[in-house]
Amino acid sequence: MNRRRLRRTSLYIPGTNPGMLANAEVYGADSVILDLEDGVPVSEKDAARILVRNALQHIPYRRAEVTVRVNALSTPFGRDDFREIIPLAPDAVRLPKCESADDVREADAMMTEIELENGIEPGTVGIIAITESARGGRNLSEIAAESPRLIALNYGAEDYTADIGAVRTKEGRELDDIRAKVIVAARIAGVQALDSVFGDVNDLDGLYAEALRVRLLGFDGKSVIHPRQIPVVHRAFTPSDQEVGFARRVMAAFREASSRGAGVIALDGRMIDAPVVARAEKILALAEAAGCLPGER
C-alpha cells in the first residue's frame, strides 16, 4: 500500500466486462477501479465478483494502482465481495456509502480477519472511503481518522446531491460544501482527497475546467468514467511553469536550511512553513508525472 502515490485519475471499469478488465490499465490512469457496485446490475453481482477476482489473480497489471469498488457491507453483496477480493490483495478497496467511522471499522476488522486467514500482512489492502450522504459528509473527519488503512477520501456527487436535495448543475456550485468538507477532513487525517466523476464524456472542455478547479481547491485527483477523460484530467493536474518554478525555489530553500540545520526557512525574505514545503513537493511530483521536469528524475 503506497499512501502517497499519484492518484490524478481513477478509472472506473465495470466488473461485468472481461475485455475492459483485461485492458484496464492500458489507458494510463494512475489508479483503476474494478467496479462491483453501481456498475453491476443486481442480477450480475455474483458473476462480476468472480470475474474481478480472476482478473486480479491472472491479469498482469503492472503500472496502475489496482482497486476494487466493493458493495457496502450493509448490502447483501458486501461480505461476499470482501471474501473473494481481499485474498487477492488489491492495492485498495473503495468503500461506498461510508456513513460513519463504524462503517470503516467494520470493513477494517473484516479485512484484517481475511488477510490473516490468507497469510497476508494485516493492513496490506488500503481503503478509499466514498461518502454519498449528508450523514457521511458530516462524519468525514471521523471516517478519515478511523483506520490506518485509509489512504484517501472520495465522495459520490450524484448520491450526495440527491441526499441533500440539491440539483446537479454544470457549474457544480452544489458541490462546494462537500468538496470543502472532503479537503479539510483529508488534510487533518493526512490522506488524499479525490474528486467525483464528471458525467458528460463528450464535454472535454467542461471536464478540464472542473478538474483544474478542484486541483486548485486542493484535490489530489478525480475519478473518470471513460478513457478519453484521462489525458484531460492529467493536463488539468499539470502545474503551471510558474507553480513549478516557485516550488523548486521553495525546495531549494528547504534543502539549504536543512543542510545548515536551521529551523527556519526563508524565501524572498518571507518565512516558509511546513505546509508550503509539502505543497511544493506535491507540485513537483505532479510536474514529474506529467513529464514536464526535463533533466530531473
Binding site: 472481461p18 455474483d46 458473476a47 468472480i50 470475474l51 477476482r53 480472476n54 491472472h58 491479469i59
Partner: peptide, 17 residues
C-alpha cells in the same frame, strides 16, 4: 475470444448458478 481467466470465471459462475 475470452481469455482463460474469463472462461474460468464464467464456468464457475454458471455452475454455481
Amino acid at each position: 475470444g475470452a481469455l482463460d481467466c474469463t472462461l474460468r470465471a464464467r464456468t464457475e459462475a454458471a455452475a454455481k448458478r
